[in-house]
Design a protein around this nucleic acid. Structure first.
Lengths: 183, 183
DNA sequence: CCGTGCATGTAATTCGTTACATGATTCC
DNA sequence: GGAATCATGTAACGAATTACATGCACGG
């Protein structure tokens, strides 16, 4: 009996619903109109994802007839949904995530303060700092070893990736400083 | 009659095969051991992708019995494969790609010098610079308008994204400078 | 009465993932 | 003889994409 998994989109929706119970249509607009646009706002993505969450008992919908329009359903988290969201947010950033799924880490962190509190945010940032501090030097090593045999554009593309991780590390440290000052 | 599409992985494989005809196993190792690890190196990803490319006539395999091991197949691009690769590489970076698919742009650029020549690389970078110059200010606007209502971690997560695009823009300019000097 | 915006959904297809299966060779 | 490495593949499943379908209400 394996634990069911909900995609990144599923968790994104849980996070959005935690603070603002919303209809599917409203969620689509949030995804489309904010810098969450790495997700698809197509109905074929959002509505099936909501149905999966509902079937798993993580969200419940209230039908609203009031506003003269077509019936719409406002979803909110159930206690099980809150538990699932917190469990996901509590995962510390792993090496693998830092290397290949920074987008998921950003998403987790974005919800962190509201759902888990500032202490959890600081823990999260510290773990991310550790992983990045280990990963960035290994990228530099690879680059130093490989650069001489690469065409210019390939080398530059690789350097662009390394820059990204360095920027992320700098950001992590500044974010930690922001929490320090905030206390 | 719609033009068939090959996934990002398909084009990655075409790009790798352009300079180094390789077996599926060798391609898996390249994906696993270099910073191309955003792709999956699982056989369930690589082999079906190769079969699709072969069926479309973009690659051909030569069976090698020589080395005592199990029979292995070394793939190389056909003329149609080279055409398809070039057509993909010739696409100028669009606004949408800059916003949500920077990974694909990096991949295109990595193969650019070898397959299309340095002039194409410069054209590509100039277009990317234009798109980023238009996009970054709009992100700043959004951030300025929204930041006051956001919890700290959400604001910081958003700022991390903006930093990423700024870094990318700086990199683009430096890359252009590198090509200037190279001439 | 027609287009636009609000609002929800399904169908076909494609692709990736995990897990499994197979087979040959070399090293210990 | 058994583990590790080379090498290729399939099957079941899950999830996203595009495209289509539906229905209500309001403004011009």
């Amino acid at each position: 009996m394996k634990k069911p998994e909900f995609g990144l989109l599923g968790y994104a929706l849980l996070g959005l619903l935690h603070d603002n119970p919303s209809s599917g249509y409203a969620l689509r607009k949030v995804v489309a109109l904010t810098p969450m646009s790495s997700f698809s706002d197509s109905p074929g993505a959002i509505y099936p994802a909501l149905r999966r969450l509902r079937k798993a008992g993580l969200i419940r919908g209230r039908l609203e007839k009031s506003s003269g329009l077509r019936r719409r359903q406002v979803f909110h988290l159930t206690p099980a949904g809150i538990r699932e969201l917190k469990q996901w947010l509590a995962l510390p950033p792993s090496r693998d995530e830092v290397m290949r799924r920074m987008d998921e880490l950003s998403l987790r962190f974005a919800f962190m303060d509201q759902v888990m509190g500032k202490n959890a945010s600081v823990q999260f940032l510290r773990a991310m700092e550790r992983e990045l501090e280990a990963y960035v030097p290994s990228l530099h090593e690879y680059l130093a070893a490989a650069k001489s045999q690469m065409p210019l554009s390939a080398r530059l593309a690789l350097e662009s990736g390394v820059r990204g991780y360095e920027t992320q590390l700098r950001w992590t440290r500044e974010a930690l400083a922001a929490y320090e000052k905030h206390k």
